[in-house]
């Protein structure tokens, strides 16, 4: 857990719209509906969903697991497994050799597609899963959300799951968006038109 054990890195979002009534039941229902589903024994490439902040194996979402008084906290969990084209090709060639040995001829394109499909399912089930966890802290009173990490990949994971679960629009807080929140209304146009200063030198 980056927020607890590591050196935290955060990305900040502003919630542009609030739910009509933010209750434990509301949050619980959204988290439960989009809870993480284990794909350990399934032939799925990835699974994305919510888990509890202190226990990535738990999706019970009792209020005490996510409501910490001044803020709400939970985690996004993404389990994924990748099957390389090379691996799939290797096993396909073995399978194809079996078919040729049995029938004396190469499989038809239809049969090839079927073999490839079932092979992919089989190999996916056997591939090891990689787990990524992304902590979320939601401060309802100031309509701010932090995610425990930076970079486009993490932001996209959060934005996809957040939108699917809560349907509430968010905007990443970066200098320009922070700027519009910080300056008075009459300076909005000046900020929008601002150009880089000539502090820096000319080209090398």
């Amino acid at each position: 857990m980056a927020f607890l054990a590591g050196l935290p890195t955060i990305s900040r979002y502003r919630l542009l719209d609030s739910p009509k009534e933010l209750t434990d039941e509301f949050v619980q229902s959204k988290l439960t509906k989009n809870a993480f589903v284990d794909i350990e024994r399934l032939a799925e490439e990835e699974s994305l969903g919510w888990v509890e902040i202190f226990n990535p194996l738990n999706t019970a979402f009792t209020p005490e697991s996510f409501n910490f008084g001044g803020f709400l906290a939970f985690q996004a969990r993404l389990d994924s497994r990748r099957l390389s084209g090379k691996t799939l090709r290797r096993y396909y060639l073995l399978k194809e050799a079996e078919v040729i040995a049995q029938t004396g001829r190469k499989p038809s394109s239809q049969k090839k597609r079927e073999l490839m499909g079932s092979l992919k399912q089989d190999l996916l089930r056997r591939a090891l899963l990689n787990t990524d966890l992304l902590e979320i802290i939601w401060f309802p009173t100031v309509r701010e959300i932090w995610i425990g990490g930076a970079g486009e990949k993490k932001r996209l994971i959060f934005e996809e799951l957040w939108e699917k679960s809560f349907g509430l629009p968010v905007r990443l807080l970066v200098p320009i968006t922070l700027g519009f929140e910080m300056i008075p209304q009459e300076l909005g146009e000046a900020l929008l038109k601002a150009q880089a200063s000539d502090l820096w030198g000319e080209d090398e």
Binding site: P175, I176, G179, F180, P184, L187, L192
Partner: peptide, 17 residues
Amino acid sequence: PAPYPKNVDFLDLWTEK
């Protein structure tokens, strides 16, 4: 506070500023 500009793409504005 100043209103966030309408009809402006966030990524374009972020890059520009």
